[in-house]
Design a binder for these strands. Structure first.
Length: 977
RNA sequence: GCGGAUGUGGCGAAAUUGGCAGACGCGCUAGACUCAGGAUCUAGUGCCCGUUAAAGGGCAUGGAGGUUCAAAUCCUCUCAUCCGCACCA
């Protein structure tokens, strides 16, 4: 429970402002009046309409994109405008520099919450989605973003998901050719003669096993609470990403996309992308490439059979699939093969039954059924002590020739590698832990460096060493370094048909079907026979019949079984005739990721009825030059859309191999900093460093009495040392922390409220002024007041706020800047230009504040400077800039146009030159004096001036100068003794 | 456990990439204008010593070392916080 103690909060802005507004002279800066007026002007004049094709005669093409939002019922969050404002500034800046800009916005509107709402209320998801989109649109327009609203799309639009289904069919029509490493039409898949002879159905079935979209019985993550299966990516700690409901493993027939075929290219493609290294790393880890070897171990102990097996292998070579008399493992450390003292197979491994001997059967069966009931969550929970049972069988270590036992244990995953491992306890800590627990032998085969403290223990088999070193106990490989042994052993065993070099990925194929209503239906149907049974043959819905619309459905409720709601559709939807044969439609729907995988392409040509995107337009606009969004999409959306894009690239639909050239993740905006104190039941304060936790995890004081956390006002605390204490009782320590915004915490900031009280320009400017775009930063309402204050100052710098109509301030005059004003003006133009280009918006704003501080103090404010600052400000605070621009241009020709269409100002280097500059003079690294020199003074002259300074003289008096450094234009440092 | 990021005043932050630490904003203090002010304007504001006041001096970028004429910035170790991943052989 979070309690609150009463304290004084300032009254809302409007109520404390209104009485004075009446008393004060008009017109003051009133965003509530200005902002809607200019938004209407932009809409009416289509000021920000994107060109169909870029005009490269004036500038570059710039495709600047925001990750489109899911239109939730809660409306915009202040986190949304952060990224949107950043891209908006970048776009406005680019346009003013002559670039052709594509800047669209849309909605990722399929998804679970709308369906859950429908289940709760009975309202069709379409209705709620439309309402939410309207609300989002209103909020986005209220913030003055320069989107081309004619290009907007929603993934739930029929004309949009017609193409999502179309792309699915392209993927379905593609197989991955490992020779060329590209996706090719399924018609080009070579069909073996034996298959061809069996007729067209056999060919179809054969092709199905190669398609990038295929059906498979997969162990899926079935979430009973949500009534759907989820992708691996949507399961966190064994719970659903959405709602944190428990997830079970269940075998089900599901659609999969063969993303693993593209693993290598998805990895390679990262190299050329201008993305944050952290995101690249996350994708690399998710793809999880490792290289090593696959090794076959002969099963059994029979020497004659082993001999035969060896001979057979030597002549046949390494078989593509393991023969029934061998157990195949994958290892990244083939160099440790001599140290493999036992083997482990996953409980789900197909060979478990065959390897289990009669006397071990009951034990293994018990273990296996227990493991199958364990969810992933339980498997990974707790101390993760190793468990396992012996199968009773053994295999032959191919290099030592010795028999080693085969165990079943759930620390080996069925879904990675071959589902079986060779265990090298001396050099793998998991194997070591297992070996210790079950008293299995440990043989060191890598000699750790002499510097390793427990080297002797490792050599004696009492400790584990996972690093590299020289091989020992490894026959003819002794003395070689790890890397050489890896290659040599793999090579040696390859010759004998026992091993081969292999690469493995953590990435799994993408589970692409969902048992939901509110998603894109699959454009595929299953052939049924006369009895209404599925024949196993699938056919694509013909292109001209797309889109496959969702059926009318009486209710959306899931039934707790993994069976899609679309099964309840009427027969006239469910059954369809293709090629004269009766088919039943696929009743799964696509996951929410589908629509977001390609929306950036549709924006380029959003109303095209005959293609997903026009080729010439695609070539002109792609790739996206700047993509801004939250880091939560680091692996999911960004990996999926790269995969789709590469398939479309291979199939000739797009011209670039990667969709997003540059990516920026805006940092999260946290709630306001909270000061939290703790009180016991009797109301006594408890210092936060004396808190304990009881058995249930509840906070208590040092005596075990329960305490309550209390939000304390900032004014009641003071800094003491490196923490905060209560002013009234400095012995009590208070925690200060900013938390994520959440409804339960009650610290969510609503953009509507901020706009109402401070204006959209203030919200935009504040979010950019808070700190670097990528940084996580806490909200501060007084900080919003600070930038509002700045805009008020800009207003008063230009507007006469004692007049009763909008009138230019008498200080603004048609004169030239004096040299000091010119220097401030041109250095501001330079700084704002450079910082805007590099997305360093916070420092650009700081510089505009300095400009305003300087010119506010000037009695004469040259019009040229005022016009320049208004133009510089316009990408950041476009509404006030338009209003001030219209005032500055009054009486001039209408040709001046609005501020948003002005040319970006250029700075004049000559104006930046100063008559003299100040240089610090250091003696032994400490500043002792400041001297004035000409900016182009050479080192000798600078030195002379420095030595002539009396304070410098005093500092070096009686000492000898050992060394003197002059850094031109920077400083002078004298080293004395 | 592994990986990544971050650490600078009371707070958000800046620092031309090794060259005057703390720009700009919030907050705070004082003054001016005011019947009034949480409006506006002016001045001050890292910490410590020092003095009536100055002048001066010292210490400061999580901590400890190092490189350098010079370190917030580079190197080594270490601590803390946040975010990912989590038996991937």
């Amino acid at each position: 429970m979070i309690g609150r103690i009463p304290f004084l909060r300032p009254a809302p802005f409007h109520s404390r402002f209104l009485p004075f507004a009446i008393l004060n002279a008009m017109p003051r800066y009133n965003p509530a009046e200005i902002e809607p007026r200019w938004q209407a002007y932009w809409a009416e004049n289509r000021t920000f309409a994107c060109p169909e094709m870029p005009d490269l005669s004036k500038g570059k093409k710039r495709y600047i994109l925001d990750m489109f939002p899911y239109p939730s019922g809660d409306g915009l969050h202040v986190g949304h405008p952060e990224g949107y404002t950043a891209t908006d500034i970048a776009c406005r800046f680019a346009r003013m520099n002559g670039d052709s800009v594509l800047h669209p916005m849309g909605f990722d509107s399929f998804g679970l919450p709308a369906e859950e709402h429908a289940i709760r209320t009975g309202e069709h998801p379409r209705v709620q989605t439309a309402r939410n989109i309207d609300n989002f649109t209103r909020q986005l327009k209220m913030l003055g973003f320069s989107y081309d609203w004619d290009r907007t799309i929603a993934t739930t639009d029929e004309e949009y998901f017609r193409w999502t289904q179309g792309i699915f069919l392209i993927i379905y029509d593609t197989w991955f050719d490992p020779e060329t490493r590209t996706g090719r039409p399924i018609g080009e898949l070579p069909i073996p003669a034996a298959v061809n002879d069996q007729g067209s159905d056999a060919v179809l079935r054969y092709q199905d096993t190669y398609r990038l979209a295929y059906q498979d019985d997969a162990l899926v993550n079935w979430c009973p609470a949500l009534g759907t299966v989820l992708a691996n990516e949507e399961v966190i700690d064994g719970k659903s990403e959405r709602g944190a409901h428990p997830v079970q493993r269940l075998p089900l027939r599901q659609w999969m996309l063969r993303i693993t075929s593209y693993a290598e290219r998805l990895l390679d493609g990262l190299d050329d992308l201008d993305w944050p290294t952290g995101i690249k790393k996350l994708q690399q880890d998710w793809i999880g490439r490792s290289s090593g070897a696959e090794v076959d171990f002969f099963i059994g102990r029979d020497a004659t059979a082993l001999d035969l097996w060896r001979k057979a292998r030597a002549s046949s070579g390494f078989p593509a699939t393991p023969t029934s008399d061998s157990l195949r493992v994958y290892t990244t450390r083939p160099d440790t093969l001599y140290g493999a003292t036992y083997m482990v197979i996953a409980p789900e491994h197909p060979l478990v039954d065959r390897l289990t001997t009669a006397d071990q059967k009951s034990e293994v069966d018990t273990y296996r059924s227990k493991a199958s009931f364990k969810s992933d969550r339980e498997r990974t929970e707790g101390d993760r002590a190793k468990t396992g049972v012996f199968t009773g069988s053994s295999a032959i270590n191919p290099v030592t020739g010795k028999p080693i036992p085969i165990w079943v244990a759930d620390y080996v995953l069925a879904t990675y590698g071959t589902g079986a491992i060779m265990a090298v306890p001396a050099h793998d800590d998991r194997d070591f832990e297992f070996a210790v627990q079950f008293r299995l032998p440990v043989v060191a085969v890598v000699d750790p460096p002499m510097s390793l403290v427990n080297r002797d223990e490792v050599l004696a088999g009492h400790a584990c060493f996972i690093g590299t070193g020289k091989a020992i106990n490894s026959g003819s490989f002794d003395g070689l370094e790890t890397e050489s042994v890896k290659a040599a052993i793999t090579q040696e065993l390859s010759i004998h048909g026992i091993a081969r070099a292999a690469v493995n990925y953590k990435l799994r194929d993408w589970l692409f079907s969902r048992q939901r209503f509110w998603g894109e239906p699959f454009p595929v149907a299953h052939e049924v026979d006369d009895q209404g049974k599925l024949t196993g043959i699938k056919r694509a819905i013909p292109e001209q019949q797309l889109p496959v619309l969702l059926p009318q459905l009486a209710d959306f409720k899931p039934h707790g079984r993994p069976e899609p709601p679309l099964e309840k559709a009427a027969d006239d939807w469910l059954y369809v005739t293709i090629d004269g044969k009766r088919h039943k439609r696929e009743t799964n729907t696509m996951p929410q990721w589908a629509g977001s995988c390609w929306y950036y392409l549709r924006y380029i040509d959003p109303r095209n009825a005959s293609a997903l995107v026009d080729k010439a337009k695609e070539k002109a606009w792609m790739p996206v030059d700047l993509y801004v969004g939250g880091a939560e999409h680091a692996v999911l959306h960004l990996l999926y859309s790269r995969f789709w894009h590469k398939v479309l690239y291979d199939r000739g639909y797009v011209s670039t191999s990667e969709p997003f050239g540059r990516l920026i993740n805006q940092g999260m905006i946290l709630g306001e900093v909270e000061f939290t104190g703790f009180q016991s039941a009797e109301g006594k304060w408890v210092s936060s460093n004396k808190l304990r936790r009881d058995a249930d995890g509840n906070r208590t004081d040092e005596h075990g009495n329960p305490v309550t956390s209390i939000s304390v006002d900032e004014s009641l605390v003071e800094k003491s040392g490196d923490s905060f204490v209560l002013c009234s009782d400095p012995a009590i320590r208070i925690d200060s922390r900013a938390h994520k915004m959440s409804k339960s915490r009650g610290n969510v900031v609503n953009p509507d409220v901020v706009v109402r009280e401070y204006g959209a320009d203030s919200l935009r400017l504040y979010e950019m002024f808070m700190g670097p775009l990528e940084a996580t930063k806490p909200w501060s309402m007084t900080g919003v007041g600070g930038v509002r204050n700045f805009l008020d100052r800009v207003w008063r710098m230009i507007v006469d706020d004692r007049a009763d109509t909008l009138t230019l301030s008498p200080h603004v005059a048609d004169v030239r800047c004096d040299p000091e004003q010119a220097r401030v003006l041109h250095s501001t133009i330079r700084k704002v230009t450079e910082d805007t280009a590099s997305l360093s918006f916070n420092t650009a704003i700081a510089r505009m504040m300095e400009f305003t501080n300087h010119f506010t103090r000037c009695d004469v404010r040259p019009r040229e400077a005022m016009e320049a600052i208004v133009v510089l400000l316009s990408p950041y605070a476009p509404h006030i800039a338009e209003e001030l621009w219209s005032l500055l241009c009054e009486g001039k020709q209408a040709a001046q146009g609005c501020a948003s269409l002005q040319t970006w100002p250029k700075w004049d280097e000559a104006a930046l030159v100063q008559a003299s500059i100040e240089l610090p003079v250091q003696v032994n690294g400490k500043v002792r004096a400041k001297i004035q020199v000409a900016p182009d003074a050479n080192d000798e002259i600078v030195m002379q001036v420095a030595l002539a300074d009396s304070r410098v003289g005093a500092a070096i008096d009686g000492k000898t100068i050992v060394k003197s450094i002059v850094v031109s234009g920077r400083l002078v440092n004298l080293v004395v003794k």
